[in-house]
Design a protein around this nucleic acid. Structure first.
Lengths: 218, 218, 218, 218
DNA sequence: TATGAATGAGCATTCATTCAT
DNA sequence: TATGAATGAATGCTCATTCAT
């Protein structure tokens, strides 16, 4: 992974299926490798979409994305058959990263800290792309399909962290993973809307963490 | 509690400026008295808009609101010069109710409980009209203008509750009102998107409350 | 039927349902009578669509029709929810007229002449709007739905004529109504494409008539 | 009968100008000899276009043809500068076959039967490729240019048959070749649109034949 | 030369807002 | 004043054609 390693995603990793994102799987794909310029455009589009969605919301006309990417609309549509598809691609990338992050904390020595660190990292990532997570929560575009699979996976990954933390008595046992994720993403959202900076958001997260902590543990 | 009573909004409360909204204030207004039927339409529109926005989201075509209200589009536009204006009117009504609610707890004996009860009530109201608060958080429609004044007022009212709670040592002193409101509204939002029922939302709120509590106080 | 009696259709008769097209049913309709200007536009659109489709084919952009009608696109869409709907409306009007024509010959004294005259009249009508019938035959737009009902009715009406003609020995008994209609509409089509004038088309029709005549009867 | 044999078209016949299409003419052409693989592609495209047009109609995106042909779009465009050109090429092939067929009947002993058999064969060929002839009749694509020369040639070839039939008193003398072709192609068209099978179409053709026959001759 | 990626004009349709009745 | 018809800019998307690889 050299040349294509861009800000967010690289072209070949587009159809992530949640499994095996290992670095060299790419070459073995049945589809041919994608021409260099096409790959470049693919990424330009992804980057532009990310920025544009984040800046203007999901409702932004797709032309704006094409323009920002410096490609024609046709090109954009060649890479993503639908506005929704483009949107999904971005969100899925984001969620995939989150899953990776969660798994990264799996074997940490201190389960409590592992969970808390993960939540902070979650917020950090979401903050960078804040309005995207906002959009994620909206019905304007139907983000169900394959996406929910990925979301399920995220849930599972986080649940592992949560269970370990519960076992160690680090957090209350009556707080579900869904609750946690709802609070964190809600916080990210709110932070985004209210112009919170990074520290502000982390303050929110800390409150949430304090809220789920096992009182005894303090 | 006056805030939760009544159909949804009543016409009187529409052009609230934070002061007296007694029933006959309308007649005394500097602006023309507004004929009885006009007043009736005004209210019908408000009610319909509320329901429709809540049901269908902000993106719903304005015609749908007119239809639900049983008035022509022209009439709707006579009362609200803009879709945005109508939307603002509704949100402002809602916020006004919230301000009332906050003030209602002002003189409660137990400042800690007062704040917590207020937050729960906040969530309750927001849950009922969840999609509205969701929309509130969006950039799709610009809800700034006059609205921010009202929001400032809400902030002040809540801040009163917070300060009293801090003074009594009920909550941490490093949590700002903005933080609190962000967390609560973020929770409401998240709850709305994830299909949480009333109890689910209250569980979230309880976590937030636990998070802002002064540890010693438990 | 005074003011609205235009070239082709009048506004109120739009949603023909194949039954009772009697002249005064209109006033009794549940829907209100349609404002004068709206009715005028409705007809202008219908006329323009007719001309435009005939001139340019079904593929013509709908804007062209709106422009020719002298109305905004929005207006066109207010009257017909879909390009297809507009197209159907026109064709259905045409077919309805044909059905009327067929029924008109029902009780004619000479069944053979009745059928033949009807076929000539069919061709005459189709020739006036020739390219429409061409379009009618195309798959570009799906003209199935309610339309086929009407087509079935036309079939029935023509079949009455055909059966009477067969009984009198005026035409061969092994020629179906479908065959006849196919030949006539095929002729109209071909005439249209090849720049045949009215007489040219009638020459074609006469050949077809000769072809279905009972040899003995000559 | 050479016209109906072979896959569909063969590359040789493409740039027919009404003369010698013997197999090695290609090499002798004034234009560059065309490399073997290029010739192969040329034919693949023609075959694919024929099938695709017949299957999907003229509106089919040109990419579909390239795909079916197993070549890139660029290649397709190298061989045919325009969608229209490709379409014309196919129709011309078809018409050329028809001309061959007509000439084949030139010296038949019974001129009446010769004409009738030709018409039946015409219908047979058109039925096989029905959507093509349908398309032929449309204004969507302008099939005039060089094409009309070929059509003129067809006219002449059929006129020979007609004149001989007239001389023998087999058909009426007031029926023009244009009339005949219009009726036949109109019938093919109508048959195509109405789901007639081969027999159904032949029934139509027989009616037309009966219509142009000299009454006495029966 | 073959390929298929890039392009962008063009199309059907929606919806906030204005205006004639 | 109430009505709803008229308006047209804006949007997502397609597809013939061009051009870099």
């Amino acid at each position: 992974m050299t040349a294509t390693k861009g800000p967010l995603v690289d072209a070949n990793e587009h159809n992530l299926n949640g499994t095996d994102t290992s670095s060299d799987a790419r070459e073995a794909s049945a589809t041919r490798p994608m021409r260099a310029d096409a790959a470049r455009n693919h990424e330009k589009i992804l980057v532009a979409a990310e920025e544009t969605f984040a800046l203007e919301g999901v409702l932004v006309p797709i032309d704006a994305i094409a323009e920002r990417a410096g490609v024609g609309i046709g090109t954009l549509y060649r890479h993503f058959p639908t506005k929704e598809a483009l949107y999904e691609a971005i969100v899925m990338t984001r969620v995939t990263q989150l899953i990776d992050t969660a798994r990264h904390f799996d074997h940490s020595a201190d389960p409590g800290q592992a969970l808390f660190e993960f939540l902070r990292e979650f917020a950090r990532q979401a903050a960078e792309k804040r309005d995207l997570f906002e959009a994620l929560n909206q019905a304007g575009i139907d983000v169900k399909s394959q996406f929910s699979d990925l979301l399920g996976e995220l849930m599972k990954a986080v649940d592992v962290l949560r269970e370990r933390a519960v076992k160690r008595g680090a957090i209350k046992d009556d707080v579900s993973t869904t609750d946690i994720l709802a609070l964190i993403s809600g916080s990210c959202n709110a932070a985004g809307h209210n112009g919170f900076d990074h520290d502000g958001l982390q303050r929110l997260i800390d409150i949430v963490i304090a809220g789920i902590r096992e009182p005894a543990e303090r």
